[in-house]
């Protein structure tokens, strides 16, 4: 690989990582939940870019479609439907410090464990995995979980309808 390509990868990784982490910090710290939701979309797009730097083009497309599209729209709808929530921000006071401590501890421990781990990196690693190969694995090796996932989605859909239905209007004449 020419050094310029390496430099481009480094630059795009740091740029996208900064975008993602700053957006994520905004998501957890902004008092206005609607603005937090918009930053969540930005964080999702940043993660999609990170997937691109990992040569996972199909995953990047799925990330933009499912997270940047479907889940983001659902979150914003939930914010609009629960309207008085706009003013509520973070927990004030007693849980703030323990939460930050726990998050810092987990972050440091995970980073340490990941850096110390003896990954079997190098030989055999796939430089570039074309989407055809992902599809091949999905529909051959993992076809049973794939079918199970469709059943799970159906159950989740029915469950969501049952939960969100207005109670006391089962006969639905309006």
């Amino acid at each position: 690989m020419p050094p310029s390509a390496d430099f481009g990868l480094t630059l795009s990784f740091y740029g996208l990582a900064t975008l993602t982490v700053v957006s994520a910090l905004m998501v957890v710290s902004l008092r206005n939940i609607f603005h937090a939701g918009l930053f969540l979309v930005l964080a999702f797009i940043g993660v999609a870019g990170i997937y691109l730097t990992l040569n996972a083009a199909f995953m990047a497309a799925v990330q933009v479609l499912v997270y940047g599209g479907a889940i983001a729209v659902m979150m914003l709808f939930a914010i609009f439907l629960t309207r008085n929530a706009m003013t509520q921000g973070n927990l004030s006071g007693r849980f703030q410090a323990p939460a930050m401590l726990a998050a810092l501890l987990i972050g440091v421990l995970f980073s340490y464990a990941f850096l110390m781990a003896n990954w079997a990196s190098g030989k055999g690693a796939a430089e570039y995995l074309p989407p055809e190969q992902v599809a091949d694995a999905l529909f051959n090796q993992f076809v049973f979980p794939f079918e199970l996932a469709s059943i799970m989605l159906l159950i989740a859909m029915i469950g969501a309808i049952v939960l969100a239905r207005t109670p006391g209007r089962e006969t639905e004449d309006a």
Binding site: A24, V27, V28, A99, A102, A103, I106, G107, F110, S111
Partner: peptide
Amino acid sequence: SAVLFSIGLY
């Protein structure tokens, strides 16, 4: 990934 996880946990 660890940084993003800890932000989410917070």
